[in-house]
């Protein structure tokens, strides 16, 4: 049996709920996973309680104030037991996974969506194919969110261990993102507009629905390339962000292959497009052949009454 260690997924210095999914992924290897929480203050590790861990280590260091790849990898390496390491698959966690693996001379498998014994499956070619690899001995595995049902129970009290890291960068300044909205890569629901929206001003209709259901607003590459008012940060697709929400609503998006690459793994897909032959409909669970002007007001009213 392989000893497994979960590196807790952190968000704003708190343990993110997806950490419980990582524990569930680790449990597929058998045994009781240890969860290591990178924290500045040991109180931040409280969030790892009841996530199914066999034990919890609060790895406490000033090095964890801001993400610094070298600093985090060195500070964690000093306190993380040997074995197979499981991390989240956010951009930061994948970066950390790669550094930790290299530091220990291990190989890394990124974006796991299934684990079966020593066989690990990940999407490749932007989700156009799936690849299963076999690992020999310990490895570092980053696991996508919304794949494993969260574990529960287990350890509550962390053991606090002080550590130090070799931080090599310094933050000069933080620059607020142009938009206060949810990031498409982090949202459970994403509503995206394409060039079919007609003009960037019409994205207010998407924003209104987003506000009702707590969604992030995304855009196709065509929309981002056509309109300066639509920033690249909103772009979903191969050269934008890859999203994996529970619900993806595509409005006025035809479904170019590079857009599909960024959103096809969404759990449910709704497509609204006036062209019945748009490729997006082949990937939609629910398709509505209509203009956005017809469909969005109806959708918004229905959602508003549901959300009370």
């Amino acid at each position: 049996m392989t000893q497994t260690i979960v590196i807790a997924e952190m968000s704003n210095n708190a343990v993110h709920s997806s950490t419980a999914e990582l524990v569930a992924a680790a449990k597929t290897f058998g045994g009781e996973p240890t969860v290591v929480v990178p924290c500045v203050d040991a109180n931040q590790a409280a969030g790892a309680a009841n996530m199914g861990a066999g034990s919890i280590i609060a790895a406490k260091s000033g090095a964890f104030t801001h993400y610094d790849a070298k600093g985090w990898a060195s500070a964690l390496d000093a306190v993380v037991p040997q074995g197979t390491l499981i991390t989240g698959a956010s951009p930061q966690s994948k970066d950390l996974a790669a550094r930790l693996a290299a530091r220990r001379g291990l190989s890394v498998v990124q974006d796991a969506v299934a684990i079966d014994g020593n066989n690990i499956t990940s999407p490749v070619y932007s989700g156009k194919a799936m690849q299963t690899v076999s690992i020999t001995g310990p490895a570092v595995i980053s696991v996508r969110s919304n794949v494993f049902a969260p574990a529960s129970g287990g350890a509550g009290e962390p053991t606090i261990v002080d550590t130090t890291g070799d931080v090599a960068t310094s933050v000069q300044e933080f620059m607020a993102r142009a938009s206060e909205r949810l990031d498409v890569a982090e949202a459970n629901i994403v509503i995206s507009g394409g060039r079919g929206m007609g003009s960037p001003e019409n994205f207010v209709h998407l924003e209104a629905i987003a506000d009702t259901i707590g969604a992030a607003v995304g855009a196709s590459r065509a929309a981002v390339d056509t309109w300066e008012a639509i920033p690249h940060a909103m772009q979903v697709g191969q050269t934008g962000k890859t999203v994996n929400p529970n619900l993806y609503i595509a409005v006025g998006i035809s479904g170019a292959i590079q857009h599909l690459a960024g959103m096809r793994s969404s759990k449910y897909i709704v497509a609204i497009n006036k062209d019945a032959d748009a490729p997006i409909f082949q990937h939609a669970d629910y398709g509505i052949v209509a203009t956005w002007e017809e469909a969005l007001p109806v959708l918004h009213d229905s959602l508003k009454s549901m959300m009370g």
């Binding site: 999407p123 690849q131 299963t132 690899v133 939609a284 669970d285």
Partner: peptide
């Protein structure tokens, strides 16, 4: 220490439901 076992196309989604008209 990692070898590719196989590659495959992603599982096809079951056909969705399609409706005509914004209502």
């Amino acid at each position: 220490s990692i070898t590719v076992v196989n590659q495959s196309l992603p599982p096809a989604k079951p056909a969705g439901k399609t409706y005509e008209g914004g209502a």
